[in-house]
C-alpha cells in the first residue's frame, strides 16, 4: 500500500513542481508552443490573404457600367486595349486552358498510371529506386526549361511531322504539360498502389490469378480513389501551369478547332499582360478577375482530390 497521493494543489506538490520547472523553461515551452501554433495556421492565413488581395483588386471592375460578368465568361472577344470599345471575354482562354489540359491528361494518365503500376508491382527494388530518382528529377525541371524545350525542340518537330504552319500550339503545350504532370501522377499513383494491403494480393494470388488479373480485378479497384486523386492533382498542375504553356502554345486568343491551332491559356494571359496594364485600370482589374477564376478552378480540383484521398483513408 502506498500512501494516498497529496492533492495537486497542496503546498508540497506545488513546491516540487516549482523546483523541477524553472521559470525560463516554462516560458520557453510556452513560446515554442506559440510558434508551432502560428506556423501551423500560417498556411490558412496565407491562402486567405492571397484570395482576399486578388479579390480586392478584381472586385471594383464588377461595378463598371461597360463590364458584364456574363460577357467576361462567355465571350471570346478579348480586346483590352482597343480604343473604340474595350472587350474582355476570356472564353477563348478558358477553352485554351481546357484543351491543353485535356490533351495533356490524355497523354499523361495512361503513361503515369502505367508507370505507377510498373513501379509498384513489376520492377525489382533496384530498378524502382533508380526510376524514382529519375522521375523526381523530371519533377524538378523548372517550368521555363520545359517551355524552352517546347518552343525550340518540339515546335520544330511538330512542324516537320504534322506540316502545321506553326509549331507552338495545343499539341505542343499538351505534350509539354503531360511531361510535367507524369511525375506527380506516378508518385501519387504508386503510393496509392503501395497502400493496398498485401493481404489482398495474397488472397488473389492464392486463388490463382494471373498478374494481369491481379492488377485489373484487385489492385486498380482497391486503389481507385488514390489513383483518381493522382490524376486530379495532375489536372490541377495542368490548369495552373503558366510559363511552359505560355512559351509552348503560341499565345493566340482563339478557340481551337484542332490540336494544331495556337491558343492562349488563362494563366499565360495574366503573365503576359499584367506587366503592361496600368495599375488600377479596368484591364488590370479584369486580369485579377481572371486570377480569381483560376484560383477557384484549381481550388475546386484540389479540394476534389483531397476529398477523394480522405475517402480512401476512412476505409
Amino acid at each position: 500500500m502506498s500512501p494516498a497521493p497529496a492533492p495537486d494543489d497542496s503546498p508540497a506538490v506545488m513546491a516540487v513542481r516549482a523546483a523541477r520547472r524553472p521559470l525560463w523553461a516554462r516560458l520557453g515551452e510556452k513560446s515554442i508552443e506559440g510558434m508551432v501554433y502560428v506556423s501551423g495556421i500560417s498556411a490558412i492565413i496565407f491562402v486567405l490573404g492571397i484570395f482576399v488581395f486578388v479579390l480586392k483588386e478584381a472586385l471594383p471592375v464588377l461595378g463598371h457600367e461597360d463590364f458584364s460578368l456574363s460577357r467576361f465568361l462567355f465571350s471570346t472577344e478579348w480586346y483590352p486595349t482597343s480604343e473604340a470599345s474595350k472587350r474582355y471575354g476570356v472564353l477563348a482562354m478558358i477553352a485554351g486552358t481546357f484543351s491543353v489540359t485535356l490533351l495533356a491528361m490524355v497523354i499523361a494518365v495512361p503513361f503515369g498510371l502505367g508507370a505507377a503500376i510498373y513501379l509498384s508491382e513489376f520492377c525489382g527494388q533496384k530498378t524502382r529506386e533508380t526510376l524514382k530518382i529519375i522521375i523526381e528529377f523530371l519533377a524538378a525541371v523548372p517550368s521555363v526549361v520545359w517551355g524552352f524545350i517546347g518552343l525550340t525542340v518540339m515546335s520544330k518537330l511538330i512542324v516537320q511531322f504534322t506540316g502545321a504552319p506553326v509549331g507552338v500550339n495545343v499539341l505542343n503545350g499538351g505534350i509539354v504539360l503531360a511531361l510535367m504532370s507524369v511525375p506527380i501522377i506516378v508518385s501519387i499513383g504508386e503510393d496509392a498502389l503501395k497502400a493496398v494491403p498485401d493481404s489482398y494480393r495474397e488472397a488473389a494470388i492464392a486463388l490463382g490469378v494471373t498478374r494481369w488479373q491481379l492488377i485489373w480485378r484487385v489492385l486498380l479497384p482497391a486503389a481507385k480513389n488514390g489513383l483518381l486523386a493522382a490524376v486530379l492533382l495532375g489536372v490541377g498542375r495542368g490548369v495552373g501551369e503558366t510559363m511552359a504553356v505560355l512559351m509552348a502554345t503560341g499565345h493566340a486568343v482563339h478557340v481551337p478547332q484542332s490540336v494544331l491551332d495556337s491558343v492562349r491559356t488563362l494563366t499565360a494571359n495574366i503573365a503576359a499582360e499584367l506587366g503592361e496594364a496600368s495599375a488600377g485600370s479596368e484591364h488590370y482589374r479584369v486580369l485579377f478577375l481572371t486570377g480569381v477564376l483560376l484560383f477557384t478552378l484549381t481550388f475546386a480540383v484540389n479540394l476534389a482530390a483531397d476529398a477523394i484521398v480522405r475517402g480512401i483513408r476512412r476505409k
Binding site: P197, S199, Y200, E202, A204, A206, V209, Q213, R217
Partner: peptide, 26 residues
C-alpha cells in the same frame, strides 16, 4: 489447392463478388 489465411482477407468487393471471384478469373 485453396488457402485460408491467418487474418481473414476477403477482397474489398461485395460478398457475392468474393465468392465468384475464382470462377471469374478461371
Amino acid at each position: 489447392v485453396g488457402m485460408v489465411f491467418q487474418r481473414p482477407n476477403p477482397l474489398p468487393l461485395s460478398v457475392y463478388e468474393n465468392v465468384v471471384f475464382g470462377l471469374r478469373v478461371h
